[in-house]
Amino acid sequence: MSIVYGEMFLTESVKFFWGCTVGEQATFEVSYTVEGADFSIAGEGAARLKRVLQQVGLPPALVRRIALATYEAELNVVIHAYRGVIKARVSSALVEVWVEDQGPGIPNVELAMKEGYSTAPDHVRALGFGAGMGLPNIRRNADALKITTVVGEGTALYMTFAGPSSEV
């Protein structure tokens, strides 16, 4: 298994990991940091992950689902938290994405999962965020979603997506 961080993996090496030797599962990991309240580069982590997944040749519909769910999770960090990190582990059988933040946490997860419920402030809603569809969109696009949250500390999302070689 190889671990690649940040910028480094916009290189040819990703293709190598993906097309790795038969018999050994080709896997790579990536990670991006996310700054709270910085809307000028919001979504950059999801966009980079999308490019990498395209480069390694995942099916476009799968890439779109992963990018979309990651974007929503990233924007939740930008809107609600101080900072966070996006991590992904990619193999042909499974794509795992973690989005973890230091932030206020979610007092009522069940409520937050309800479509239309949002605690986004007005200046964020004016940009077209805060429809209360972020977590529902993530649930709809990920094959599995786990939310761990501690009020006053932060939130961790864990999403998984079945890869092209998973249907064995």
């Binding site: 809307f39 779109r64 940009l127 077209g128 965020f129 429809a131 569809m133 969109n137």
Partner: peptide
């Protein structure tokens, strides 16, 4: 004009009409 609404429902290759004029 709601970004998550577009993410939830808009299809690839379609036109998106909006009055949200920012980088997101």
């Amino acid at each position: 004009d709601m970004l998550s609404d577009v993410l939830a429902h808009a299809a690839p290759d379609c036109l998106w009409v909006t009055r949200q004029a920012h980088q997101n």
